[in-house]
Design a protein around this nucleic acid. Structure first.
Lengths: 266, 266
DNA sequence: CGATAGTTTGATATCCTTCAAAACCTGTGG
DNA sequence: CCACAGGTTTTGAAGGATATCAAACTATCG
């Protein structure tokens, strides 16, 4: 429940797209077909890189933002610290995600972002991003789509904590994580490496560590999921999905868009 | 818990901005300074109006959308029906809100929208909206901002159901509703008219009607809030806000934007 | 004036929390 | 290499918040 993250010496197994091509370009390509000009512009504004050690804070609530952070590699999490000292995690950020989605409407962040494992980010200056949005409509369109997907994910999380019991909540979480990590074409064999503690899970679902622990033992007993520190392994995906009533559509990982014009206009 | 809405003969007390000027123009004006061209375009695409009786369904989950609905007057609510038959309300829509925020990424809606009281909407055809976005960058920018605010509200709702107890959840809800309705320059005296039942509240917070009822009695006993059907009246706003740890910033009702350039570019 | 939806009440069950402590890891310094 | 320290997982017992079930009461509408 403290404002701490689990120390993580093992790096996440997410591939470092940044070494091949820009993660933001990758992400935007799901939504629009980018030309050379846009790609160059994206490359230009994501030059300034910075490393964050596991457990450090990328964005601090209430502080002024002069730039937006793009996750290049690693995993970060959005969270808020409530007046009673509790931490509520409100999102996981993987490569290609932008930390400060609310950059347009608010100069101060309304939540913190912390690095879960060693994480590299690109610092995009606000003014550079805004210029890019104005100059390249496809970039603005992509940001609109990212934010719509963000809202869809939050709706799903909301339904999850509002309606389901602890078993279903956690099952749903693991289903989502599996999907999102598999979307990065990871080898699913061998499970997924995130340096997540049971406290992190508790703070995500609004449960206590004690209860999370008991649920995880249930999963293990039932042969649904294996959990060891920094690593989890879905054993019976079908049953887990059924338990969670999981439907991955809301993640929009397949890049489905409503109208072909959204992809290739202009 | 059923897919029904409370019958509402008394209309909401929201002013019908549509009679003065377009609600979408009003809304966008919070974010950007619109020129004559944009206003004309907005007026053009929001011509096709339709009335919905209280309790009827504006948008049905899983159905194809060829148009986006804009609330002109009245109140509607977003909800999902879960496999076990339960209803989860995931948002309230007031004049100027768009029903199908996910229009860009998905042709089928992932949730229902129902009219809480008699509600007038403008049906904007998808292609007309997309053309307007391409032609008028300020319109696209406004949509981006609306969707960012949407996501911020969902984050707040998420924290609310995840972390707070029933008293705090409900207090938070009433604080938010007060703020949002006051933003329409309603006379706060005399309370707020929404034809909301305790079942609706329960389905919003993921609680049971029975428990909601007991909490509401507590509020009444404590002199915090008066509730009669179709109407509520905040008696002690300060204490209610304190109880809910309510900070209205996330609603962005004051039209604060990060950067003046966001308002007046192009 | 009866039918129907909404509110209220009581009793009981369950899920989850709280508190407290033990057991287990994993990295660190001597 | 061992011992220690701090974080993490696990266990147990007990309490509290909320759910469930069932029924009575009360508005409201036709």
């Amino acid at each position: 429940m403290l404002e701490q993250f689990s120390p993580a010496l093992c790096p996440t197994s997410l591939p470092h797209f940044g070494q091949l091509t820009n993660p933001l370009t990758q992400r935007f390509s799901r939504f629009v077909s980018l030309g050379v000009a846009e790609c160059t512009a994206i490359e230009a504004i994501t030059q300034r890189r910075k490393m964050f050690k596991a457990g450090s804070t990328l964005v601090r609530e209430g502080y002024d933002q002069d730039c937006v952070s793009l996750i290049i590699s690693g995993v970060a999490l959005r969270y808020r610290i409530l007046p009673n000292g509790r931490r509520q995690i409100i999102g996981f950020l993987v490569p290609g995600d932008l930390c400060d989605t609310q950059f347009v409407i608010l100069s101060k962040s309304d939540h913190n972002v912390g690095a879960l494992c060693d994480t590299e980010v690109a610092r995009i200056s606000l003014s550079a991003l805004m210029n890019a949005m104005v100059e390249y409509p496809k970039i603005e369109r992509s940001l609109l789509m990212m934010s719509l997907i963000d809202a869809a994910i939050m709706r799903e999380w909301f339904v999850n904590v509002a309606q389901r019991n602890a078993y279903q909540k956690l099952a749903h979480f693991f289903c989502e994580m599996s999907e999102r990590f598999n979307a990065y074409s990871l080898p699913p064999a061998g499970g997924i490496n995130i340096p997540l503690t049971q406290t992190d899970l508790a703070d995500t679902m609004g449960l206590t560590v004690v209860h999370v622990n008991r649920v995880m033992q249930g999963f293990r007993r039932e042969g649904l999921l294996n959990w060891s520190r920094h690593h989890f392994d879905v054993l019976d995906a079908a049953r887990l999905k059924h338990l969670a009533q999981f439907d991955p559509a809301y993640l929009h990982l397949d890049g489905t868009v409503a109208d072909p014009r959204m992809c290739a206009y202009g």
